[in-house]
Each structure stands twice: as C-alpha cells, then as structure tokens.
Design a protein around this nucleic acid. Structure first.
Length: 490
RNA sequence: CGGGAUGUAGCGUAGCCCGGUAUCGCGCCACAUUUGGGAUGUGGAGGCCGCAGGUUCGAAUCCUGCCAUCCCGACCA
C-alpha cells in the first residue's frame, strides 16, 4: 500500500475515492456503478442497521420482506411515481439462457416473460398492492412495517456509497386511518433519523421539508435531514414521506372506518441507505484517513504491543487480557493486534487510515512503569497514562471523542451557513465559500428551477424550525415570508 | 447521452512519437538482522502490454474497430 492519500484540499473527490478504497471499506465491482462492500465497510453498516432497527422496533415497527421483482404494470398505477423512476429502472425480460451452439451463452428468446419485471427502485407499489389484502377495517390499522433490502436505480453517474446502481437500505411503509396520524408518523421517523445522525453518526443535520421540485415521486410532502459535507456540499441523509392517499387510490386500498364509511388509507414511507456511510466519511475524515464516531466504529480501541523478545510480548499479552475483559464488560470493542509480521509504525498508520477512535500502545517501558500510550484519532494527540483505571479512562475518552467530532462538524456547519440577501452575493459565495445559503425565495418551482439552472444550487430544504420573516426573493424580488436553505448537493 | 482521460504483474507506473518479447517503485515469497511512527539486506516468484482485426520478417509501440473503467456535465437517495 502506498503511503498516505491525496489531500482533501488538493482534490476532494479523489480524496474520497481513495479513502474508501484504502480504508478497506469497499472496492469497485465488475459491473459499472456497483461496488463490493468489504467486511470493514459492511461492519459499519451492520452497526447502523442494528441501532436503527432497535429504534424502529422501539417506535412500534416490525420487519417484513417483499420481493425484489415488481410486475411492470404496478408502476403505471401511480402517475407521478412512474415519472420519477421510469428512467432508472432495470427490467427483467427473460428467464433463461442457452448455449448458441458456438460455445456462447445467450439469452433464450423462447424464454421471454409475458409480463416484464422491474427490479425494485423502491417498493411502494408492490407493498401497497399487498396491503390491499391486509386491510379491510380501521381495526387493521395502523400497519407499521419496515424492510431491509437492496434496491436498484440505474443512475447515469455513480460514486461509492453516495450513489451506486445497487444499494442497501431500509424502507418503512406504514398505513394509517387518518392523515393526522400519517403525518405524525412521518415526523416521528424524521426525528428518529435526525437522532441517529446526530447522536450516533455525530453528523448535525437540518430537519426540513422539500420543495415541490425535490419531493419524492408520489408524495404530498417529503421531510428530510440535510447534512453539510466538508467540501461545502449538502447531502440528503434521510427522507420521510407523507404519501397521502395516492398509493391507496392507485392500488385501491380502502378500509371501513368507525362510522361505517369507506375511505382510502393514508400512507407514509421513509428510508435511509448505505449512503449514510458516505456521509460519515465526508463529514469527519481527514488527510490521514477515516475518522469514525466511537458509537459506530467496528473497532473502538486497538492495542499495539511493542516488544523485542517473546517474553515481553507474553507480559503485554497477559495485561491486555485483563484490559480486554474490563472493556468487554463495558460493551467496548477492542482489538489486540499482536501480528508479528508488521511493525508498530505500520500498524499505527493502518488504524489511523481506518479511523479507529483510540489506540493503546504498550511497550516494555510501559510495563515497567505501569503505563500505556493512549492516542486519539480525532485530535491526533497522544499521552502517557496509568494502566490503573485505564478501562474507565477509555470509556470516558470514547464519549469525549463522540462529542468532539459532533461539535467539530457542528461548528463547521455553523461557519458555512450564511444568510444571503442578493443574488450576486449568492453566486459569489457558492464559488468562494460553499455551504448552506439561507435566502428568501418566492415559493415557486419556476424560480427554484431558474436558480438551479443558473447556479447549480438547489433548495435543500425549508427548515422545520424556520422563523417567519418578511423579505424578497433573491432571484425575482417577489415577496417572501421565510428563508430557505440552498446549496450545491451530492 | 455529450465532453475529457486512462487501460502494461495485486497496486502505482516507464517504454509508444522513432517497431526488435517489457522499466522502476510498492506489495508478495524465503532467510537473516530488526521492532516506542509506515524497517533493512540478500535471494526469489509473478505479464495472452484491455479485446479483435490489419500492416510488417517482427507490434506494448503503427492503423482500424470494439470494450471497459474513472473524471466533468445533463438525471438522481
């Protein structure tokens, strides 16, 4: 492995790509736009899954699984949904291959499907088709189902974790008797996502609503959490949709309410994906590699022994056994890297690249003095501390690191969120100091589109806690009642 | 789908203009010496030079076609 990676300042895009590869998170697959998520990267996803799954269960949801393949006809049932996804659907047309006689494997034209199948880009259609059979009465509601799945969106341009052709995600699909209840669900799940992003990933997010242009295909309202990356570009980290009765109407899902009147069911859907790993990388990492929040790091503490002779290693090993036991009891994951094939310096560099929050180095000198060297990944500082009480100190440090990287990201966002009142300044800042730009907008899709065409910036969201204030649209000068957040986005 | 770039060992590359079976570094294997920030020495293994045609006595190199990937746009979580 060559030393180091390209610096963020030099080439942010290359920095990101190299980091993903060199930190052993993922690699390119033979199919364009697809990636192999390697064990280290996947274990981050597993941690995310485990925490989120717990949060979903906590809020009353259950998991189920719906098919990968969706009959093509289902898609045409919800007009705006088709418009939104048609251009990026993979389609299965045949179910058999054959040998053409020249040693080539070809599609068997005799095995053409009567109805072509779509590889799900999202599962609303097949789920609502299924819900029709599950729901007759208000007594059957609400339905609070989540599924962990892969989906395929044939994107023109892809990037590891941020936008791949196939990606892993969860999609919640709920059915309710009233719009109020569905909206409450939508907002609840948005808060779950925001809680996860901030308290587990250490990534501060803005909770908001999407403008009409950015809304999910088929939704009445899309709520989102928006994060700011270190290059000043915004990243949508999660979405929660109030679908109204659109899918119920499209799939004829009716229920009889308490007063014996038939009505269409109210729906929500919400999801986060492996894109969160991209957000994690871009929010915290530096030129030395990944910086992972302790709460999601696959390895929280790594121990590197420094020794010359076998008996020294034996001594250290004996000590590490005790430390491991103490940390395990606290639920802290520890790796003792006693490989004799790599020297300590190489290990230090490797774990920095991989973002392990804390490193403990122990040599014979430490064993004599009853100390260890404790190094923090986030600040790249190290200190010599007593072995006595080390487990407690580690526990406290991990918490401190978790706080610190959140605070750092929070301060970065604060420093890169600017109120702007003129279009000239808006354009200037986009180039000179990218970030969130808080500006007045006349509320029309046309103006948003115009701004997008002229500057590549889009409305990331209308923040939920937005204060109302009189102003004029930066582009058209028409009256406006509130500022919205603009940015160039991933 | 437009614009750009690149394909040579696991990775990164030189060679290409000016044809003669491939350079260097990292990594890998063995042994020795090493071990508090990416070790050193010695020896060794590893290549249908992206693919297919063509020109030529001879092609990594010249010509034609194709394919793939990456980057920048349009489109999007």
């Amino acid at each position: 492995m060559s030393k180091g990676i390209v610096s963020k300042e030099e080439d942010y895009s290359a920095w990101y790509n190299e980091l993903v590869i060199k930190a052993d998170l993922a690699e390119y697959a033979p199919v364009k736009g697809c990636m192999v998520i390697k064990p280290y990267g996947y274990s981050i996803w597993e941690k995310m899954q485990s925490v989120l799954d717990g949060m979903f269960k906590e809020t009353g949801h259950v998991n189920a699984y719906f098919p990968l393949f969706i009959p093509k006809s289902f898609f045409s049932k919800e007009a705006s949904h088709v418009d939104g996804f048609a251009k990026e659907c993979a389609v299965v047309t045949h179910y058999r291959l054959k040998n053409d006689g020249n040693g080539n494997i070809v599609v068997d034209e005799d095995a053409k499907l009567e109805e072509e199948l779509i590889v799900r880009p999202t599962s609303e259609t097949i789920i609502w088709n299924t819900y029709r059979g599950w729901i007759q009465s208000y007594r059957d509601l609400p339905i609070l189902v989540n599924q962990w799945a892969n989906v395929v969106r044939w994107e023109m341009r892809t990037r590891m974790f941020l936008r791949t052709t196939e990606f892993l995600w969860q999609e919640g699909h709920t059915a309710h008797a009233t719009p109020e209840e569905a909206i409450a669900e939508t907002e609840q799940m948005l808060n779950v996502y925001a809680d996860f992003a901030e308290n587990w990933m250490g990534v501060p997010v803005v909770r908001g609503k999407k403008s009409a242009n950015e809304r999910f295909a088929g939704a009445l309202e899309t709520y989102c959490i928006e994060a700011l990356m270190q290059d000043g570009k915004a990243l949508q980290a999660g979405t929660s949709h109030f679908l109204g009765q659109n899918f119920a109407k499209a799939f004829d899902v009716k229920f009889t309410n308490k007063v014996n009147v038939q009505d269409f069911v109210w729906a929500t859907s919400w999801g986060v994906s492996t894109r969160l790993i991209g957000a994690l990388i871009m929010a915290h990492s530096d030129d030395a590699g990944l910086v992972l929040p302790p709460k999601l790091a696959p390895i929280q503490v790594v121990v590197v022994p420094i020794y010359k002779h076998q008996e020294e290693l034996d001594n250290i090993t004996e000590y590490v056994k005790g430390l491991t036991k103490e940390l395990k009891a606290k639920g802290i994951s520890i790796k003792f890297d006693n490989r004799d094939t790599h020297r300590p310096g190489a290990k230090f560099a490797e774990y920095e690249l991989k973002g392990v929050p804390l490193r403990v180095a122990i040599g014979s000198r430490d064993m004599t003095n009853g100390t260890v060297e404790l190094a923090r990944r986030d600040t790249k500082t190290k200190e010599t501390v007593n072995q006595e009480g080390l487990a407690d100190l580690i526990e406290a440090k991990l918490e401190e690191i978790q706080q610190n990287i959140y605070q750092k990201a929070f301060d970065f966002r604060a420093a890169n969120t600017t109120e702007v009142d003129t279009y000239d300044e808006f354009k200037r800042l986009l180039d000179e100091k990218p970030g969130f730009l808080s500006a007045h907008w006349d509320g029309t899709p046309e103006t948003e589109q115009l701004i997008k065409d002229e500057t590549k910036a889009t409305i990331r969201c209308i923040p939920l806690d937005n204060k109302q204030e009189e102003g004029v649209c930066i582009r058209t000068g028409k009256p406006s009642t509130q500022r919205v957040l603009f940015a160039r986005a991933y």
